[in-house]
Design a protein around this nucleic acid. Structure first.
Lengths: 149, 149
DNA sequence: GTCTATGCAAACTGTTTGCAATTTA
DNA sequence: TAAATTGCAAACAGTTTGCATAGAC
């Protein structure tokens, strides 16, 4: 995630809160810390992992239902997106960086990110030639990582 | 699916049955018809849809548990693969054709297939440059199809 | 006649929802 | 203090599994 637009967390949180009040919504300690976990994690976390981390790392009480609700909310805000590596479990990440795709190790489950200009371009061409109005894409490459080979 | 290697269904079924006996396994009417549904369908079907089709189109009694078991079995045989368009529901298809990816309409849910040489090549390059032993990839482009625009 | 495959229903897993209690602005 | 958010537990949906029965070889 080194290539991420590195904004300060405080700035990010301020923007987030102003978005909330603009829409007549209320913030909560839970949202603060869920956001913090996501912001400073460079992994793709499941709802369960987020819940655990908020509880363990910040000693903040949070229910998994709140995490799911918050993820939905963040998705609608377009600041979070999820990834399913084929096991039917949603893994969430902040979508602050430019579009990227994923490499998944089928042995250890490690997830690497990559961004490839050529694939981005080619995807536009494919959409166009099928008369699709492009919105988004997901590409996941499965293989065996260096350590597991 | 016009580009599929069009082998006869009878040939396909024969190969399948010989694979079974080679492994000391037994066939069943259910497997026959599940296979038939998949072979002649050019859609990506859910377990529920497969169950319905076998029952309605061939009047063969089948439980959804059998369909799931059979899908697992076919996946292990590498003749079926599934697709999740983001809703957490598995959609199955026979993997007889060359590798292809999918275009999904976010309005009507229609699924189109495409194969792109450049993307295939580029994915190899990405895997290599990350020291991954490439196994497979999944690419799904989301957009709005011609009809829904 | 074995031994595998099936159907049913119950179990499971990840996710969603209703509701009373809490917290925020 | 009015309205939104929370935690809990129950509900849900898709998928898996145990087991007695039916069917294939």
């Amino acid at each position: 995630m080194e290539e991420r637009y590195k904004i300060e967390f405080t700035t990010f949180l301020k923007n987030f809160k102003s978005h909330l009040s603009k829409h007549g919504l209320k913030n909560s300690i839970q949202k603060d810390y869920i956001l913090k976990i996501l912001f400073f994690s460079n992994e793709h976390l499941t709802a369960e992992q987020i819940t655990e981390k908020v509880r363990n790392e910040y000693k903040v009480d949070v229910g998994i239902a709140t995490v799911y609700r918050t993820m939905k909310f963040f998705e609608d805000m377009d600041i979070v997106n999820f990834l399913d590596i084929g096991d039917g479990i949603k893994r969430y990440e902040l979508s602050l960086s430019l579009h990227h795709d994923h490499l998944v190790c089928t042995e250890c489950g490690k997830i690497l990110e990559f961004a490839d200009e050529l694939i981005e371009e080619q995807q536009k061409i494919v959409a166009k030639s099928n008369n699709f109005n492009l919105e988004d894409h997901v590409m996941t490459i499965y293989g065996i990582c260096e350590n597991c080979q």
